[in-house]
Simulated scan of single mutants.
Amino acid sequence: MDVGAGRCGGRACYGVSLSRASVWRLLTGRLGWSLQRPGRRAVERGESEIARLIAHEWPRIKRGP
């Protein structure tokens, strides 16, 4: 995996080529980055609207036309 971007990539200018594992160790260990994952539920989630949908709309949808 070449490190760097733009006209002068890592290998072209510096002769550096790192494996994926090395890049991961660099990002997490030395730079303190972490894997980001979304939360379980959206903040904008409308619980009352979901309850209405399940109670009124879902039976109609499940039945079909």
Rank of each mutant, 00 (worst) to 15 (best):
W33G: 09
V3T: 07
L18Y: 08
S34P: 00
G32C: 11
S19L: 09
S34L: 13
R52F: 09
G4V: 02
W24M: 01
L27M: 12
R20K: 02
A42Q: 06
R20L: 12
A21F: 01
R63L: 12
P59R: 07
G64H: 09
R37M: 14
G6R: 06
R7C: 05
R63N: 10
S22Y: 02
R60E: 15
R60L: 15
S34T: 08
S19C: 11
V3Y: 15
W33E: 12
E49I: 03
I61M: 12
R45P: 06
S48P: 01
G32L: 10
C13H: 06
I61H: 01
R7L: 11
H56E: 15
G39N: 01
M1H: 06
A51F: 00
R7I: 03
G4L: 11
P59Q: 10
K62M: 14
S34M: 11
L35H: 12
S34K: 10
R20D: 12
W58G: 00
E47F: 10
Y14R: 00
V43W: 06
G15A: 05
I50R: 07
A51W: 03
R40W: 10
R30V: 11
R60A: 15
L53P: 00
G10C: 05
C13A: 12
E49H: 03
D2A: 00
A42R: 02
S48R: 11
G10A: 07
L26S: 02
P65R: 06
W24E: 07
C8K: 11
E47C: 02
G9V: 03
I61E: 03
G46V: 00
V3K: 09
S17H: 09
S34H: 10
S19D: 12
Q36F: 11
R20C: 01
I50C: 11
I61F: 06
R11A: 04
G9R: 09
S22P: 00
V43D: 14
G64N: 12
S22R: 07
G29C: 04
R52K: 08
A21N: 04
I50P: 00
G6V: 04
G10T: 03
G9W: 04
R20T: 05
R7G: 03
A51T: 02
R63K: 12
I61V: 11
R41G: 04
G6Y: 05
A12P: 00
Y14M: 04
G32V: 05
R7W: 02
G9Y: 04
S48T: 07
Y14P: 00
G6S: 05
T28N: 14
W33L: 15
S17A: 14
E47N: 02
Q36Y: 10
L31A: 05
G46T: 02
G4M: 06
P38Q: 13
S34W: 05
R11D: 03
R20Q: 04
W58I: 10
L27G: 04
R11H: 08
L18I: 02
I54C: 14
D2E: 02
R45Q: 14
Y14S: 01
V23K: 10
R30P: 04
R45E: 15
I54E: 15
G32K: 07
A5M: 08
Q36I: 11
L35R: 14
L18R: 08
G9E: 06
A12E: 03
G39A: 12
R60H: 13
R40D: 15
K62F: 14
V43F: 10
D2H: 00
L53R: 02
G9F: 03
W24A: 09
L18F: 06
L27Y: 03
R37A: 15
V3I: 14
A21E: 12
I50N: 08
R63A: 14
G15C: 07
